[in-house]
Design a protein around this nucleic acid. Structure first.
Length: 104
DNA sequence: AAGCTGACGATGC
DNA sequence: CGCATCGCCAGCT
């Protein structure tokens, strides 16, 4: 299975109300340093059932508005219960999903 | 087969 | 704390 496929399966299993960093996804996909590759995988976005909006930067920042539209990702996350700091970052400290994810 | 690219992350200043 | 730089890895051309 390709790295990208793993990434998709992982991201797809992130429950609403939680977020994961690209690096976290990459780690679960097999390579802790492949955060960029994980982002590349998201860029492909082959399936629409992938909650790619729940994947954020390690520091809680959201992806560039260019991909989701102005404030789109933030709105989605907020609607799922994610809280934000005044800096505009997702409160990843509280909502980071740290459970094991199955790749099957 | 080789090089280029990018939804990243850690460090340095 | 914000900005700049370097290093990383998988995929694409």
């Amino acid at each position: 299975m390709k790295f990208n496929e793993k990434v998709y399966k992982i991201v797809r299993q992130i429950p609403a109300g939680f977020v994961m960093s690209y690096g976290q996804v990459a780690a679960l996909a097999g390579n802790m340093r492949a955060s960029r590759a994980a982002g590349y995988a998201m860029y492909n976005c082959p399936y629409k059932d992938i909650p790619c909006h729940r994947v954020v930067y390690a520091d809680g920042r959201l992806a560039a508005e260019h991909f989701f539209g102005a404030g789109r990702q933030k709105a989605l996350l907020k609607s799922e219960g994610i809280t934000f700091t005044k800096d505009g970052r997702a409160d990843i400290k509280k909502h980071r999903y740290k459970h094991i994810i199955q790749l099957t």
